[in-house]
Amino acid sequence: MKALVPVKRVIDYNVKARVKADGSGVDLANIKMSMNPFDEIAVEEAIRLKEAGKIEEIVAVSIGVKQAQETLRTALAMGADRAILIVAADDVHQDLEPLAVAKLLKAVVDSEAPDIVIAGKQAIDNDMNATGQMLAALLGWPQATYASELLVEDGSATVTREVDGGLQTISVQLPAIVTVDLRLNEPRYASLPNIMKAKKKPLEEKTAADFGVDISPRLEIVTTTEPPTRSAGVRVGSVNDLVEKLKNEAGVV
């Protein structure tokens, strides 16, 4: 069996995004970029499946600017076997929409024929939470989103999902798309020897044009603005003080 893991290069989760003054977007120049945290969890899960003998090969795919190579090298250093980079933007500020990403991923799935695609639940930049579901629709495959537990058996996967009321367990027939949530696992760090080894693993480079799919945006970004900021409040000296303020000033209790 083969697993495909889409990994996105995004702003590091420790960095606070700053909106550009002209409203044209978030400033990503000279900002630390990393693998989307959910995608690290997806890569980790694929590696664990391989270690458990459930799958033989892990292919990591990234779509975006050329520098997404680094993200793929990280995936390779963690334990992916090979990588595919689809260069689809020449500026880090150009973010491909999930529909376009899903179309490109579908083309990769058509040629790679994986048994399972393990993606992140959400990219922490655009916060779309959509690509896995869209890819599943385009392929006509079942989907198991927000996984906190994944069991791969013969021809199916049993997935426990984090839902609003708690947890839901479903079984999906393979091939399927799984998107992962925070509690699925704790991703490993790539060791130095593995980082060195990853440099020799195959990384195939393609362009969006190679796939002949329409990736033009459907959403025009009109403007990007700062959210309203909260003005700092006051420190209260004691619990009694707090209760008094909540009752008489804020009127909320």
Partner: peptide
């Protein structure tokens, strides 16, 4: 969780872009 699970799939079936959240 349920709306976000279903609607992107609907959007892709219709070949339109989901507008999330």
């Amino acid at each position: 969780a349920s709306g976000k699970n279903v609607l992107p799939r609907v959007a892709a079936l219709l070949d339109v872009m989901i507008i999330s959240d």
